[in-house]
Amino acid sequence: MSANDAAPPDEIDAALGLGGGSPLDALRRRREDVRAYSQSSWKALFEPSDFGDLSAQERLALAKRVAEISASTRLVSRYQALLASAPDASERLEAILAYADKITAAPSAGRPEDLAALAAAGLSPAAIVTLSQILGFVAYQARVVASLALLETSA
């Protein structure tokens, strides 16, 4: 992909409060394809053409929980703002968040019964895959944001 200086601010910029022309912005734009596919991954998970078996609220509540456990206050604020209002409590959402709590902190702690609990709460295999992609993506995003913020303060 060719560099495109006109590419608009993305979710990483939003989390970091990055303005165009800053040193970090220039550093990110050096790898325009990484920047673009980071954002298209975000869109695939949070603004898909079809939400399928995992609602927008469930996706955002899950992302916010992963951000909380990752201690990324910037991402917590971002997902909170997108969530707008508290999601309706349900056993399904509780199961999703309990899974996020366990896997985010200790990815190797997952056991077959944890997947069984998600299925029992009504999640299809497709929903479990999307949930897992969100859990992984926010773990990725939290580290990108933390590493860029650290580069800025370590100047």
Binding site: S41, A44, T130, Q133
Partner: peptide, 8 residues
Amino acid sequence: HDAEALRQ
């Protein structure tokens, strides 16, 4: 299962 998430 989530083709677009995989693709990106």
